[in-house]
């Protein structure tokens, strides 16, 4: 499976592989978009600089995953990123949810607790995936995972620091954080699932099985939860707003797509 150009793919492997790649690419793309809406609105200027650097890295990761899809003949990276309908998108619904009430240009009242929890939980899940992908049977993906992983160390540390700090702070912080945790876990199953082709994806050695990855996420998070006096049971993991891996999405995604592809759609054939 190392050289997609030379060897024709077993169609079953190829559909499992592309299913996985769409999840990886769409997850990072939409979360980086949500991050870019935060620009200039973070709690302080230092955080604005750090958060926008993370969003930029994340957008870069999305571009690398879209590139792997382009290499497999799925279309060019810009049409993959900008030209697909919501129903074709495979990102987890959690990642498409708006940052909070208001518009990113005028009345934004974004929820920092939600930003911290969503990003922290997601980045840890992404880290677990990248660690597993380093041994992927598809070498080009293993190579990309290695590159992505180098930047994740810093992302994870960043969000973990915020998470612990806000969980341990007095005042309004704790209840706000707990509300955000409840909201995030209510759709976190949607992040952890490998979708309808999950079994095939694991069988072909593209990544380890969903359940193993999930247990590893819990294993990584439990000491942190304990340190801030939080108990999380996996029974609360759900997909309250749908399974994005099946193309189920919310109106939040439609609105996001029309914004992020507004200029692209002026003339998709033009060079920008």
């Amino acid at each position: 499976m190392n050289k997609p150009d030379n060897k024709p793919f077993d169609p079953a492997i190829k559909s499992a592989l592309t299913a996985l790649l769409y999840q990886l690419a769409d997850d990072d793309f939409i979360l980086a978009y949500r991050g870019s809406e935060w620009l200039g609105l973070a709690p302080h200027i230092e955080e604005d600089v750090a958060f926008s650097s993370i969003s930029q890295d994340t957008m870069g990761h999305a571009a690398m995953f879209y590139q792997l899809l382009e290499d497999l003949g799925e279309g060019n990276i810009d049409s993959l990123a900008h030209g697909r309908e919501a129903s074709e998108r495979k990102n987890a619904v959690l990642l498409e949810m708006v940052n909070g009430p208001g518009h990113y240009l005028s009345t934004a009242q974004y929820d920092w607790a939600f930003a911290v929890v969503r990003n922290y939980f997601y980045v840890q899940a992404k880290k677990v995936r990248m660690d597993s992908l380093k041994n992927s049977s598809y070498q080009p993906l293993a190579d990309v995972a290695l590159k992505v992983n180098m930047e994740l160390y810093y992302h994870l540390l960043h969000w973990k620091t915020w998470f612990v700090q806000l969980m341990q702070a007095g005042g309004e912080a704790r209840p706000r954080m707990e509300a955000a945790i409840k909201k995030v876990l209510g759709d976190f199953e949607g992040v952890l699932t490998l979708g309808p082709l999950g079994n095939e994806i694991a069988e072909h050695g593209l990544i380890e099985a969903e359940e193993r990855l999930k247990q590893r996420w819990l294993f990584m998070m439990e000491p942190v939860f304990e340190s801030v006096n939080l108990s999380v049971s996996e029974s609360v993991f759900a997909m309250k707003n749908g399974n994005g891996r099946k193309g189920e999405h919310t109106a939040d995604l439609d609105a996001a797509l029309s914004t992020l592809s507004e200029v692209y759609n002026v003339d998709p054939a033009a060079s920008w």
């Binding site: 990123a81 900008h82 200029v263």
Partner: peptide, 11 residues
């Protein structure tokens, strides 16, 4: 920033 017309321009 969110509206830039390609991945390269977005980055």
């Amino acid at each position: 920033v969110p509206k830039a017309p390609s991945l390269k321009r977005k980055l």
